[in-house]
């Protein structure tokens, strides 16, 4: 009657649940402050039933990141993207484990404007415990989760999360979310998620959030990012990154580290695409 077996082929949902527990145990052993986000960390009613996550998302106190990286790598996680290349917001990096799959480590949440360490304190001060794989994991409270899900939807598209996290909330709950957004300087991103972006037309990040919600070309994206960049130095870094090949993404696309020639070929393609896009805009005018 016993069927004990190696479960490396476990369904994704099982792996994700267990992986949350793995990361939490690592955090507990090393005094690392983190919060579990999305997937099984979402409180009941805030997401469509039956929706499953394919990876683990955690928000770590930024000053604890080096300890978390050491902890993850001590049990076999390998870093696959870094913070500079992981996303537009440079807010997350990914680790992979053959048994546990992907872990996305966030040091900040896109759309939140206050300092990341301060933001973590705000999210953590009302945290609650949720058992994931029968392991107590700290997660943001209901109001913070509503905000997090709406901000994520604003950046990633899709309205399902907004339906559950915002539209279904009563006016008092929505006011709590707005108050939290004000404290976190996340009002523009919240507005983008709930269809009120035009109230912030003069904000430096308006075009960026309009790009995320309405789409556009790569050039539109970079113009929006430049407008949102606060300093000349930040703008210069962005311009450099715009034409640089993302080696992490190329590695994932190829399934192996890219050769120097492959990086060069992709570089040429990026420059050509940027040039073509610019030329087509000039022709349209």
């Amino acid at each position: 009657m016993t069927q004990e077996a190696d479960a490396r082929t476990a369904p994704v949902a099982a792996r994700v649940h267990l992986a949350h527990a793995v990361v939490q145990k690592l955090a507990e052993d090393r005094g690392i402050d983190l919060l579990h986000l999305k997937g099984p960390a979402v409180l009941p009613g805030l997401r469509a039933e039956g929706r499953q996550s394919s990876d683990v998302d955690v928000l770590v106190r930024p000053s604890h990141l080096p300890r978390l990286v050491t902890a993850l790598e001590s049990v076999g996680f390998e870093q696959r993207t870094d913070f500079a290349t992981g996303s537009v917001f440079a807010h997350a990096a990914n680790w992979w484990h053959d048994d546990w799959g992907w872990v996305d480590v966030h040091t900040s949440w896109p759309g939140v404007g206050v300092d990341a360490e301060v933001a973590f304190d705000v999210f953590a001060r009302t945290r609650v415990q949720v058992p994931i794989a029968h392991w107590d994991c700290p997660v943001p409270d209901r109001t913070a989760q509503r905000l997090i899900l709406v901000l994520h939807a604003a950046r990633s598209g899709g309205t399902t999360d907004v339906d559950h996290a915002w539209t279904a909330a009563d006016p008092g709950e929505q006011e709590d979310v707005r108050r939290l957004a004000r404290e976190l300087d996340a009002e523009v991103a919240l507005a983008a998620g709930i269809g009120e972006l035009d109230l912030h037309r003069h904000h430096p990040t308006y075009r960026l959030w309009r790009y995320f919600t309405e789409g556009g070309s790569r050039l539109d994206e970079w113009r929006a990012r430049l407008a949102a960049a606060g300093t000349a130095r930040a703008r210069a870094e962005l311009l450099g990154a715009a034409l640089r090949v993302n080696r992490d993404h190329l590695r994932m696309e190829l399934g192996r580290p890219p050769t120097r020639e492959e990086v060069r070929a992709r570089q040429r393609l990026r420059v050509r695409r940027a040039t073509d896009e610019l030329a087509s805009r000039v022709r349209r005018r």
């Binding site: 016993t2 069927q3 004990e4 077996a5 190696d6 479960a7 490396r8 476990a10 099982a14 792996r15 649940h17 267990l18 527990a21 793995v22 990361v23 939490q24 145990k25 690592l26 052993d29 902890a71 049990v75 048994d99 392991w135």
Partner: peptide, 13 residues
Amino acid sequence: YLARVPRGMPIML
């Protein structure tokens, strides 16, 4: 599905 965390392998029953 179970595992000793953080270092154990996944086990299926």
